[in-house]
Amino acid sequence: MYFSAKEMLAQLEGSDKRICDLVIKNEVEISETTREKVFEMLEERYQVMYNSAHEALEKEIRSLSGLTGGSAKKMWEYCKKGNTICDNTIIRGAAYALSCLEVNASMGLIVAAPTAGACGILPGALLTTAEKYDIPHEQVLEALATASGIGQLIVKKATVSGAEGGCQAECGSAASMAAAAIVEMLGGTPAQAFDAAAIAMQNIMGLVCDPVAGLVEMPCAKRNASGVANALVSADLALSGIFSEVPFDEVIEAMYKVGKALPSTLRETALGGLATTPTGLAMKEKIYGNHAEASACTGNCASCGGCN
């Protein structure tokens, strides 16, 4: 077992083992399972991630609320035209992330990574990078294990819940996980992987969770798209040899403290930030009508639409 990056790095010192090796070994022990079974479960998750990252690229998928959808398809068409400001790797990843979020908002099948609200960043960043470098499939699965290890440390030291720590806890954690996974997949050292994870979290520290109408749609989808860019830039920074002056463990502790210091209005309650802008409130009204609270609904009222 491990409780910090420091501990993991100490366990890895002097060997050619990677973070993913420790994570898989630990999983075999605590879940009383086999390495083969772990890879089977990783493959199952990979497949769902792959499908959700592609499902909304060619056909427009609308959310359950009807408020959002179609962004992934737009981004995909834009990407195919070429001539984008960011390079193709980032744009593809951003389109994948949007697709995951649109599938999610339509009650489709996704993998929470670490949460449903941040489910686009890891598949987006990882798949686009694996495609660019033509990475063998098993190494992509190992990268998912690296990502899980980063997530495990964040859950142990802090939180991945938006209600507890804001968006930094969800999209920040997802970008951290993805950045470390990519560094290790591309042959970076465990120390560089933790640097990438630390940098990705620093980049959005303090980000609030302010979903319009309380839904996992606005601004979640766009934050997942930009989370891909955050993960990729952080991975490149670490691979270039730039390290994080503040080590990963301390960054995570700081993120937790910042999360605790956020007022509850900015932690997934839809009582602040974008949710309470005139536009945000108007969209809420559009869904729930005059029944600001869905509590009045019995499921039998045809006019409200707030309940079924």
Partner: peptide, 23 residues
Amino acid sequence: MNISMFDILGPIMIGPSSSHTAG
């Protein structure tokens, strides 16, 4: 406290919210 890697990478779920839907 033991946390499985599949507590992080998962669940495989119908969206849109891990807490409001899967939970």
